[in-house]
Structure formats: structure tokens, C-alpha cells
């Protein structure tokens, strides 16, 4: 209608704006996209690089032997990955036993109980714990923690799984506590007030209302911390020894008291040993890396699935 009334000259000019502005927008968009794409490119590159060498490794070693073998002695070309996988899982499990209760308890304290004064001391303390280089933790485990545990009457080897695992646990406490605290702090105060209004105590409100409402975030913190424990290298290289050992279900205490080896530690050994770059020992590093990647990737998927299931149930 308007078109018929208005003449060409009176019509509002809204098209054909400044060409340079449009061009600038395109550049911004492209730069931002490239940055966002970088992480994906790197991830894909890593997987491809690992896969190429791993395929070469599996040309030399039967994948079935690799994934089902229970002996890892590279010098004798025995590449059974299970002792390393159980070693890794043992470290992860023990560190989880240390980090999850302590981490969640500190998160509850910081989020629900602590006075601003107490928080101002404790929070930086935890952050410092997160900033200590893992080589220092490894040293502490080897020199002090093992001695301390022996003082408690445990019969431990110089290198042992227990001390390394506990130290990995201590290392990941800040991840659990800080992410869990964020999740708990995000629970609206109206839910706490509802609890107090019904005559609940602080402990009942914290554990019965705040923790359940923050559960998805708390679970995510567990998964992230455990992924970190699975990938931890320095502490286990220094304090756990280098002897791959199947976890012995009939003697779990013995398995903890002796030395062991994780996948990460075996990779370090492969890359630092003086074998040729074409040898199966050297190539085994890539197969191990790929296996490790698959495990942590699965953990991340699990974490996302859990977070989606419990996603912000409060409003």
C-alpha cells in the first residue's frame, strides 16, 4: 500500500549501508570462529596423531593380546595393558576415596557454615593446594607420606600404590571442593529459608536441601577430579614405582602396599627409555595414550549425561 502512496524519492533509505561496516563484522565473526574452532582442531589432531602411531603399534602387537594380556614387560615384548589399566583404576579409586568425602565436606563448610573470616583464610588455602606443582606432591609422597604411613604400622614398600594414591587424592581435593562449592552457592537462598522456616537445623538444610539441589554440579566435580586423577603422571612416576602389577583381588592390601604402575607412568617410561623410535616399546606409548584418551573421554560423556539428567532442578 505504502509503495503506491510514496514516491521513490520520499521512501526511507534503509538498505545499502556502509560496506566497510559489513566487512568488519565478517572479519570479527571469522576471527572468533577460528579461536573457537582451534580446540576442536587440536583435539582431532591429537586423536589422529595417536591413532596413526597406534595403528603401527597394533601392526606389531595383536590388539587382542594388548587389551586382554595381563603381563606388561616391554623388554620381553609382552604388551598386556591390563596391569596398567588396573593400576590406573586403583590409583583413581583410592584417590576418590580420599578426595570426595573431604572435598564435599569442605565445600559444605565453605558454602553453608563458614564465616566470611574463615572463608577468607580457607579459600586461598585451597587455591594454593591446587597450584602446587605435582612434582612436589610426588616428592612429599615418596619422602614423607610413606614414612608417616609406616609410622601408623603399615608395611609399605619404598615405592607403593597407597601413598601415591593418597597424594593424588589430596591433589584433587581443591577441584572437588571448589566446583562443589560453586554448585552449592548457586542454590537459591529461598530454598534454605524454606528449610529453616520448617524448623530444620543447619545440618539438615545443608545435607537435605542444598546438597541434593546441587547434585549435578557436585557429580560433575567428581568426574572432572577423577579424570584428573586418571591422567596424573608425576606423582605416580615418583612415588609408585615402575613395576606393572595386576590388581590382586585376593590380596587388595598387598596390592596397595607394593609398587605398581599406571598407564601414564608406562608412557613416561617408554618415551624416556633409550629404545628406537620404531620399536614396539616406543610405539606402545601411542596405544596407551589412545586408551587413556578413550577412558577420559568416556568419563566426560558420563559427566555431561549426569549433569543433563540433574540439570538445575531448582528454578
Amino acid at each position: 500500500m505504502d509503495d503506491q502512496i510514496r514516491t521513490e524519492s520520499t521512501r526511507l533509505q534503509l538498505t545499502g549501508g556502509e560496506r566497510s561496516r559489513v566487512a568488519r563484522e565478517r572479519v570479527y565473526r571469522l576471527v572468533l570462529f577460528l579461536c573457537a574452532a582451534l580446540s576442536v582442531v587440536v583435539t582431532v589432531t591429537i586423536v589422529v596423531a595417536l591413532a596413526v602411531d597406534a595403528v603401527e603399534f597394533f601392526g606389531m602387537v595383536d590388539p587382542v593380546d594388548f587389551f586382554t594380556g595381563t603381563t606388561w614387560v616391554t623388554a620381553r615384548d609382552q604388551f598386556g595393558v591390563l596391569p596398567l589399566v588396573t593400576g590406573t583404576l586403583l590409583v583413581t579409586a583410592v584417590s576418590a576415596l580420599v578426595a570426595i568425602p573431604i572435598g564435599v565436606a569442605s565445600a559444605i563448610y565453605l558454602s553453608e557454615y563458614a564465616s566470611p573470616r574463615a572463608r577468607s583464610v580457607l579459600k586461598p588455602g585451597l587455591e594454593i593446594l591446587a597450584g602446587i606443582p605435582t612434582v612436589v606432591y610426588g616428592y612429599l609422597a615418596l619422602i614423607y607420606l610413606t614414612d608417616f604411613l609406616r609410622g601408623l604400622g603399615l608395611d609399605l614398600g619404598t615405592f607403593n600404590v597407597l601413598s601415591a594414591s593418597i597424594m593424588v587424592g589430596i591433589m584433587i581435593i581443591p577441584m572437588v571442593s571448589s566446583l562443589s562449592e560453586d554448585a552449592m552457592s548457586a542454590v537459591p537462598d529461598s530454598l534454605r529459608e524454606a528449610g529453616y522456616g520448617l524448623g530444620a537445623t543447619k545440618y539438615e538444610v545443608s545435607t537435605g536441601i542444598v546438597v541434593p539441589a546441587a547434585l549435578s554440579g557436585i557429580f560433575s566435580s567428581f568426574i572432572l577430579a577423577l579424570s584428573r586423577a586418571i591422567g596424573e603422571t608425576m606423582i605416580v612416576v615418583m612415588a609408585m614405582g615402575l613395576r606393572p602389577r595386576m590388581f590382586d583381588l585376593t590380596d587388595p592390601v598387598g596390592s596397595l602396599a607394593e609398587s605398581g604402575q599406571t598407564m601414564t607412568s608406562a608412557m613416561v617410561q617408554a618415551v624416556t627409555s633409550d629404545v628406537g623410535a620404531a620399536s614396539p616399546t616406543y610405539k606402545s606409548m601411542f596405544a596407551l595414550g589412545l586408551t587413556l584418551f578413550a577412558i577420559t573421554f568416556a568419563m566426560n560423556l558420563l559427566s555431561n549425561a549426569i549433569a543433563a539428567r540433574h540439570r538445575e532442578e531448582y528454578q
Binding site: L191, E193, A194, G197, L198, G199, P212, A213
Partner: peptide, 28 residues
């Protein structure tokens, strides 16, 4: 507070089932 109940300005049910919401105070 066990003798003086309170209802708040905007509805603030717990992220729990309807039953558990109504039963929360009884359990506590």
C-alpha cells in the same frame, strides 16, 4: 520455627517430589 510456619513471597518448593515437599517438615 517448628511452631511458627512460614510461607514465602514467591513459591519455593524444594526440587523434590510433591510428596517429599509436603513430608519434609514432618521428617525433619
Amino acid at each position: 520455627r517448628r511452631r511458627i510456619g512460614m510461607v514465602f513471597q514467591s513459591p519455593n518448593p524444594f526440587p523434590k517430589s510433591i510428596y517429599d515437599n509436603a513430608a519434609y517438615g514432618l521428617k525433619v
